[in-house]
């Protein structure tokens, strides 16, 4: 409960604060809360990966870009209460309402069988799954990440004078 409340709170701060750095810090807090939620769901490996990959790698990248670009406060956020603002809130609220009614009306699936659930989140079990049943996807992920490295370098480098 506490984790969930804090997760929602930090998510709201993430999209509501004007300063990008504050937003990023709230997002880090959000990732830690999600990691705690994964622990309550017996997903120990994913909880560790969540902190390592998201709170570590991705957020360092984001904060680094924010500092590199030297962004100041978004000027006059409130002045642009335009049709998009209203539209965004209407769409978002409608989506939330829809998803929640969907979940609550289908509430017949909450049999939490804990004895099988304890074992599935361990590194051992997930590694077995990854390298036997999911060997092709994991090779493809390797290719994707390699391509990403090359692409990011090409995109971010300065234009060469030629």
């Amino acid at each position: 409960m506490v984790l969930g409340t804090l997760a929602i709170g930090s998510a709201i701060i993430t999209i509501a604060s004007r300063h990008p750095v504050r937003s990023a810090m709230a997002l880090v807090l959000h990732f830690f809360m999600l990691s705690g939620l994964y622990l309550t769901l017996n997903a120990q490996f994913l909880a560790a990966i969540q902190i390592l990959v998201y709170a570590g790698a991705i957020m360092v990248l984001v904060v680094f870009v924010i500092m590199l670009l030297n962004l100041s406060n978004e000027e006059k956020l409130k002045l642009k209460v335009s049709s998009r603002y209203v539209l965004g809130w209407v769409f978002g609220s409608a989506l939330a309402f829809l998803l929640m009614t969907l979940y609550i009306t289908h509430s017949s699936l909450s049999q939490f069988n804990a004895e099988t659930a304890v074992a599935i989140g361990t590194v051992n079990n997930l590694g077995n799954e990854l390298f036997t049943n999911y060997i092709v996807p994991i090779e493809l992920i390797g290719v994707l990440l390699t391509g990403t490295i090359v692409g990011a370098i090409v995109l971010a480098k300065k234009k060469l004078e030629n």
Partner: peptide, 15 residues
């Protein structure tokens, strides 16, 4: 909880 967070993310993307 996941629906709420998804909606917050949607609102953030749009606004």
């Amino acid at each position: 909880l996941s629906a709420i967070i998804f909606s917050i993310g949607t609102i953030g993307v749009i606004t």
